[in-house]
Nucleic acid binder design. Structure first.
Lengths: 343, 343
DNA sequence: GTTAGCACTCTGTCCTCTTGAGTGCTAATA
DNA sequence: TATTAGCACTCAAGAGGACAGAGTGCTAAC
């Protein structure tokens, strides 16, 4: 079994490594405050910890560094729940201080501030709109061939799409069309609009509008708001500041992954409520082998709407980042709930 | 005076350096096709070219590399107008092939494709909306305290803003308000909306609407669409592939510049029509000392609406990039003119 | 005016040596 | 029996030297 002293040493090593990014040896560790045993004793304990798989060596006579398993144990058992500095609280609160009504702007600003606070890369998966329900749809004619559909959802999200009109469409019929759409589609989740248009609206349109054939397809396809939630980033280049990423090739492929978005989206979207830590290879992605990803979710009322994550090296300040995200996610949820729940 | 043979040599050196990123010496140059003189002769000519300031050495016994002045001469006088490969044409045309009606999407896609085609970073300054004229404004109530203003411009650009309503605002007055706004503001350039609201609309609102005081401020401030045009990027990380940016610190500060946007925006916004090349320090920015920026503009009809740029190392394939941008800007202008001019 | 030849220079690479920080093992100690 | 001191050993990183390769500038010959 693992002893208390071993845990003390493990914790000291990981804390030190997170700070200095350097392998740490028995002698320097023995000089640390709170460590009262000789370097020889520490060597023995380290050797045991290595056998358990919590530590690794970079070469035979180097100091030890934490292994993935070591970080995992540290995160699961050794993390002292650190309370946030008032400064940090204040800065996070400032995100929500301005009266901003657009969710996207809040999300964008959050990404920026979280990356500045942590010096890592922040990724925010914006609110899922496709679960939102249609509140109102407006159609405004633009030219002979095009009109704009403005879609407003129950959470206050607004989206506009250009729809193309059939060649000989009568402008007077726009209002009729809008009425039909509102009549039938209000309250329908955005993801189901397309279906509903084909199934219910098409019939009605055929009764009231000339030339409805191509119009139905055009409507159904443009109102199909199944576009995945947007990803927002902050501090994309913060990775470059970390000593473990001073290798151009590593950093290059990592940044490509970030820029591509697709890969990260897959990772972000499957996120259960609460705070989760994925360390190194737990991310199931070669490019993220040396990274850890800490995710948190935010909600409107009880409904979880988005995910926020911090991406850093495995040698990440877990404690601080977790506290930040906890605080942030609580505040964000509170704000969103207040703003949008009663629509 | 500079002789024809010197120009031939200068051109050969620059072409070679653009390809291989290695200083080039007299002997290897003498082996090149089209160069019929001995290495000694070339050495003499190179020495002259260096005296003129067109070439540099990295150290006393190294081969030569082009100086900024060398590139400048090359771009101004030696560039053979290269015609585009049909492949490239096809790919650029494909941007405009889909029936996309939203300008932003076209711009975004352009940035992506141009960066893929060149392997450099592309930057597109989106259309200036503030010169657009208001075509229609719609107001849709959202909650007790908020409503959405939808602003449509003569170029088909749509923007929505949340406006906050005074506490005891009567919902029935929304339509009245919208009518007043439309009546007074249609045809007004977006940049002047704010002014016009204070000067003309305020009076009218005071006559027809209770509680108009805070409403006017709220309207004026939210409808103030002086937000600068957006910047779109493609291939932000392409810089990392260039051998001259294999230095982390250099690349890090350059990417920060790109991520900040502000600096680049300043550079992009002041752009006269046509294609322009800025080499190294001509960019007036320490971080861009080793970069060249080639910009082109695009228009709707006669009105120039945006700028597109390619950012690469000074050792850039000027000829190819210029051809690409020329072709692109012509096509883009043609498409936009067709789509939006007759609104 | 052009070219051949030669002495010289600088970079990059390879090798060796040395130092310092670390380890593991063994024997002495509390 | 658990801890510590001591010692031999290992490895990385840095310094210094030797050397090959690619280049230059200059001078003299063509």
């Amino acid at each position: 079994m693992i002893t208390d002293r071993q845990l003390l040493i493990l914790q000291a090593i990981i804390d030190d490594f997170i700070r200095n990014a350097q392998p740490i040896g028995s002698r320097s560790l023995s000089k640390k405050e709170g460590i009262a045993f000789s370097s020889a004793t520490i060597r023995n304990e380290m050797s045991d910890l290595e056998e358990f798989g919590f530590l690794e060596k970079t070469h035979t006579s180097s100091g030890r560094i934490p292994s993935e398993k070591g970080y995992r144990y540290y995160v699961d058992h050794l993390l002292a729940p650190q309370s946030l500095k008032t400064d940090d609280r204040r800065i996070i609160r400032s995100i929500f201080a301005d009266r901003i009504y657009e969710l996207e702007k809040i999300v964008q600003k959050s990404a920026k501030i979280l990356s500045e606070l942590t010096n890592y890369t922040s990724i925010v998966l914006g609110p899922k709109v496709k679960d939102n329900k249609l509140k109102k749809i407006q159609i405004i004619s633009l030219s002979r061939e095009t009109a704009i559909a403005i879609i407003i959802t129950d959470t206050g999200h607004v989206e506009n799409k250009v729809i193309s009109l059939p060649p000989s469409f009568d402008m007077n019929e726009i209002e009729k069309m809008a009425n039909i759409l509102n009549d039938r589609l209000v309250g329908v989740p955005l993801a189901e609009l397309r279906d509903k248009i084909y199934k219910e609206v098409a019939v009605l349109l055929s009764q009231h509008i000339h030339n409805y054939g191509t119009l139905v397809t055009s409507l159904a396809e443009t109102l199909d708001i199944s576009n995945p939630p947007k990803l927002f980033f902050g501090g994309k280049t913060n990775m470059l500041k970390q000593p473990e990423f001073h290798d151009i090739d590593k950093v290059s492929s990592l940044l490509s992954l970030i820029e591509q978005e697709q890969g990260l989206y897959e990772i972000m979207k499957q996120n259960p409520a609460g705070i989760h830590v994925k360390i190194g290879r737990e991310n199931n992605n070669v490019l993220l082998e040396d990274c850890s990803l800490i995710t948190a979710t935010y909600s409107v009322g009880q409904q979880q709407v988005g995910t926020i994550a911090i991406l850093g090296p495995t040698r990440m300040e877990y404690s601080r980042v977790i506290s930040l995200l906890e605080f942030f996610s609580k505040d964000m949820t509170a704000l969103l709930t207040k703003l949008y729940q009663n629509y």
